[in-house]
Design a protein around this nucleic acid. Structure first.
Lengths: 150, 150
DNA sequence: TTTGAAAGAAGCCACTG
DNA sequence: CAGTGGCTTCTTTCAAA
């Protein structure tokens, strides 16, 4: 991971569809050279994929919530299965602390939320927070100080 | 948002670089027709961008944490400014409940975490959870039931 | 890593249902 | 009015140096 790779990575994080030719123009490399560097970062697992970002609010999911779930010791497998099978759950983290699972979900309505919480409360107590706004949404990962990885 | 648009959206969420010709093949449309539908979803704000997904762990940021921040009434602007200026913060949500801000950050070490928490504790008390694993990481948003938006 | 040639994809247009 | 097919331009890929 030299400086050129970081700059390529920044550009692709901002717009995954930037043509290699334009990336090359900006970082001072030919298109095939950029393609080769990207291929290597993919192979190394540094770049794990390319995604279109959609706005759930525009698709009928106006409610975003965090539900923190406090789970009894032997229910973990069941919880994992439930979150994986629940399409409303956009992300789920297993974390340390009293609340074992952080669940971020997108819902159509408050009724929809109540239904979701009922499904989860089988496995423990939930603490729910509505998302009001997002001061930081998709931070682009940049090189900080002197980096080396591999 | 008809069924075709949803299928196009699913494919682009899975791989933002899927060629329109291949999307067309899969949904039964010509490439220009797909391009036109994508353009309209972009214009409508349904698709907000395309991003390369990177693995911070492969780039020296082995620690992922949630820090919940409880903030006094008049410190909100300062907190927003701080999270926006802090590169370690990947996402930040302003939420309802006792903890006003949920902060997801990527760090190099425990020492790095301590330093980050010190910066935030100026504005309130923090509750930190280490991320152990992610049962759900990037859920693809799909049509549920009968959808209509616009 | 670069260059140059070939394959492929995207954008533009007139035309069709 | 959305979709198709052909054409042009740009991009990617592969070979060779």
């Amino acid at each position: 991971m030299d400086d050129l790779n970081w700059r390529i990575l920044e550009l692709l994080q901002q717009d995954a569809r930037t043509p290699y030719s334009e990336i090359g123009r900006r970082v001072g490399l030919s298109a095939p050279a950029v393609a080769e560097r990207v291929r290597r970062m993919e192979d190394a697992g540094i770049i794990t994929g390319y995604r279109a970002i959609v706005d759930p609010g525009k698709l009928g999911y106006g409610l975003e919530v965090f539900a923190r779930l406090r789970v009894a010791g032997d229910k973990h497998l069941a919880v994992r299965k439930l979150v994986m099978q629940t399409p409303e759950v956009l992300e789920c983290w297993h974390v340390t602390g009293e609340d074992c699972y952080f669940i971020r979900a997108r819902l159509e309505s408050v009724g929809h939320l109540e239904e979701l919480l009922r499904r989860f409360s089988v496995y423990g107590s939930t603490t729910t927070s509505l998302v009001l706004s997002k001061p930081v949404e998709h931070r682009v990962l940049k090189a900080q100080g002197t980096e080396s990885a591999g």
